[in-house]
Amino acid sequence: MKNKIAAFFVGLLFSLGLGISGMTRPLKVFGFLDIFGNWNASLIFVMIGAIAVHLVTYRIILNQKLPLFSDQWHLPTKKEITLPLVIGSFLFGVGWALAGYCPGPALTSLSSFEFRPALFFASMIFGMFGFRLLDRQFNFKR
């Protein structure tokens, strides 16, 4: 149960960070990607802030034997650079530019009760579902 309450709190904090930083404003995200037009660089500071904190804490935390509420670490182990990694990331980037939403801000924006993020989010779930169907056929080496 503790790990679930922890996950709730992390989700809460994360979404507040997204809202405060401006990541939930599609036009701002668009401006950030529009480097050949009217570039708004401000969102680069979101990444700088997040990475500056986590780059340091990651190393401190991993010095612990185990996480507080789990009997093991659940860190990604894949090392290989694969075609699905690159193609998938490319498709994601195109969609991100088209809507101005990535998954976290889209989820957070559901609470605005606006139609646009809800339409995006529902379509995103369909996209994930489509992946699952294809993956059953082709078993992508991600």
Binding site: V10, G11, L18, S21, G22, V46, G49, H74
Partner: peptide, 26 residues
């Protein structure tokens, strides 16, 4: 504001790792 919001995001990711041993991949 982006810098502060970003720091909150970094803190959230850190707590996920410290508490549950996971990366926060939404």
């Amino acid at each position: 504001m982006p810098l502060f919001g970003g720091a909150l995001i970094g803190l959230a990711a850190s707590l996920m790792l410290y508490w549950n041993g996971r990366v926060t991949g939404i």
